[in-house]
Computed example of a mutant assay.
Amino acid sequence: MNLDHLRYFKAIAECEHYGRAAEILHVSQPNLNYAVTQLESELGVPLFEKAGRNVRLTRYGRLFLQSVTESLQKLDESTRALQELGTGGGLVLLGSIRKLAAQTVPELMHDFLAQPGQEGVRFELHTESGFSRDLLQAVAEERLDMAFVSHPGDPTVFECLPFKRSPFVVVVPPGHPLAEKESVTLTETLPYPYVYFSKRGGLRPAVDAMFRAIGAQPKIAYETEEDTVVAGMAAAGFGIAIVPDHPVLRCLDLKILPITAPDSGRTAYLCRKCSAQLPEAASYFYQYCAETLSEKNC
Rank of each mutant, 00 (worst) to 15 (best):
M1K: 12
N2Y: 04
N2S: 14
H5F: 10
R7E: 15
R7S: 13
A13T: 08
G19K: 15
A21P: 11
A21W: 15
E23D: 04
I24K: 10
S28H: 14
E42C: 11
E42Y: 12
V45C: 05
V55L: 05
L57Q: 01
R59E: 15
Y60E: 15
F64Y: 10
L65C: 01
D76A: 07
T79V: 10
Q83T: 11
G90E: 13
L91H: 07
L93I: 09
L93G: 03
G95I: 10
A101Q: 08
A101G: 03
A102S: 04
Q103M: 09
Q103A: 03
V105Q: 03
L113P: 00
F123K: 09
S129C: 09
S132I: 00
V139F: 00
A140Q: 08
R143S: 00
L144A: 08
M146K: 00
F148W: 01
F148E: 15
V149E: 04
V149N: 00
V149C: 01
S150E: 09
G153N: 10
P155D: 15
T156E: 06
S166Y: 13
V171I: 09
P173V: 04
G175D: 06
H176S: 14
P177G: 04
E182G: 05
E182P: 00
S183K: 04
S183Y: 02
T185E: 05
T189V: 12
L190Q: 07
P191Y: 08
G201P: 02
L203Q: 05
L203M: 05
A206V: 02
F211I: 07
R212Q: 14
I214C: 04
A216F: 06
P218V: 02
I220N: 07
V229T: 14
M233S: 05
A241D: 11
V248M: 08
R250H: 12
L252V: 10
I256W: 03
L257K: 14
L257P: 13
P258A: 01
A261E: 00
R266C: 02
R266W: 15
A268C: 12
L270W: 03
K273N: 06
L278N: 11
E280I: 14
Y288Q: 01
A290R: 15
T292W: 01
N297V: 15
N297M: 13
